[in-house]
Design a protein around this nucleic acid. Sequence first.
DNA 1: CTGTTTAATCGTAATATTGCAATGAAACGA
DNA 2: TCGTTTCATTGCAATATTACGATTAAACAG
Lengths: 115, 115
Amino acid sequence: MGISKTELFTKKQNELANIARVLGHPARIAILQHLVKINACICNDLVAELGLAQPTISQHLKELKQVGLIQGSIDGTSVCYCIDPKVWEKYKKLFGEFFVEIKAIDKSGCGPDCC
Amino acid sequence: MGISKTELFTKKQNELANIARVLGHPARIAILQHLVKINACICNDLVAELGLAQPTISQHLKELKQVGLIQGSIDGTSVCYCIDPKVWEKYKKLFGEFFVEIKAIDKSGCGPDCC
DNA sequence: CTGTTTAATCGTAATATTGCAATGAAACGA
DNA sequence: TCGTTTCATTGCAATATTACGATTAAACAG
């Protein structure tokens, strides 16, 4: 990301940006959508499913785990992953709050061609 | 981002990831929140507001413009920025669709300690 | 025309991300 | 015990991001 001046922003802004950053890769979107669709723990058929190498998938899973969106539990030699519904709801709410309704624009103080 | 294998994913997955990526920086979150709050076109008091250098703000604005979230219109020597409500609603919907309700987890096929 | 203001662009240094081959580590079956 | 399976970790190359100083471009005031 290059260095990022997190100290300039509020905790909530940094948190939202961080979640968005994690969602900012199609592989991680695809992993989450697959986990939602399967609606169960899955072990790593994700590698076959997505077409990325195993270490790459593992790395993406790690990032998803770090923000709490998914949990992994060991089941023999394999690992089951599933979405943490609580965290999922939390972030759903966070994005919902961010995308507030946009009201009509007040053009006072702007030029005639403004927006 | 390093190279990213966009061809492995659907158009919608790539689109959502791209928007999320753009939202994945606190400065851009702060810019959007300010524009929403002001509810009008603003010229670049953003530089004073955020505490980042002018070229840096300009770069962030460029990214927000590229995904269509904001528009800029020239007003003399300054530029007015405001949110594009249509695009805003579009992305709001996109995230809403992504964050579907999570149902109770079906543990069949998983080990006893699974998730 | 000259100087000022505002914002985009260029160039660059520092840092982060992505993807994967190679390697480890842990659990299992025979 | 030994080989196998599954996944995490390490190390690295290629690329992207972030931030900003310097510069440029455009509109304006005088």
